[in-house]
Simulated assay, not measured.
Amino acid sequence: MLVQRVALSTVRVDSWTVLGDDDVPVEPIERYLAYLTDVDRSPNTVRAYAYDLKDYWTFLAHRGLDWREVRLEDLGE
């Protein structure tokens, strides 16, 4: 997985995305980061969330967990 900066030419603001191992944006992460950008969060905030979400998705993949079905117990282990 890779965090990638995205230049949004329409608003002249940088944003961030997370690319999966197939070099395609991870859709749930992409939607959330786009939301943060749309509500005018700082690019630094969006970047921090991108790196944290990349780490979380890597953790889920390593554990074989689906992000829609993760339980508190899974995180606690």
Rank of each mutant, 00 (worst) to 15 (best):
M1E: 10
V3H: 02
V3N: 01
Q4D: 12
Q4L: 14
Q4H: 13
Q4T: 13
V6W: 05
V6A: 01
A7E: 10
L8E: 12
T10L: 06
V11S: 07
V11D: 09
R12T: 07
R12W: 07
V13M: 07
V13Q: 09
V13H: 01
D14Y: 10
D14K: 09
D14S: 12
W16I: 03
T17S: 06
V18S: 02
V18T: 01
L19R: 05
L19E: 01
L19A: 03
L19V: 08
G20K: 02
G20Y: 05
D21Y: 06
D21F: 07
D21W: 01
D22L: 04
D23S: 10
V24S: 06
V26S: 02
V26F: 03
V26L: 13
E27M: 09
P28Y: 11
I29P: 06
A34K: 14
A34D: 15
A34W: 11
Y35I: 12
Y35N: 09
L36Q: 14
L36T: 10
L36R: 15
V39G: 12
D40N: 14
R41Q: 15
R41N: 15
R41G: 09
R41A: 06
R41V: 05
R41T: 03
S42F: 05
T45C: 08
A48T: 14
A48C: 11
A48N: 12
Y49L: 02
A50I: 07
A50L: 07
D52H: 13
D52G: 05
L53V: 04
L53K: 10
K54P: 00
K54C: 07
Y56N: 04
T58R: 06
T58Y: 00
F59V: 00
L60N: 00
L60F: 05
A61Y: 02
A61L: 00
A61I: 02
H62G: 07
H62D: 14
H62M: 11
H62V: 14
R63E: 10
G64Q: 05
G64D: 04
G64L: 04
W67G: 02
W67I: 12
R68I: 12
E69H: 10
E69P: 03
V70C: 03
R71I: 05
L72N: 12
E73H: 06
E73V: 15
D74S: 01
L75R: 01
G76P: 00
E77M: 11
E77K: 12
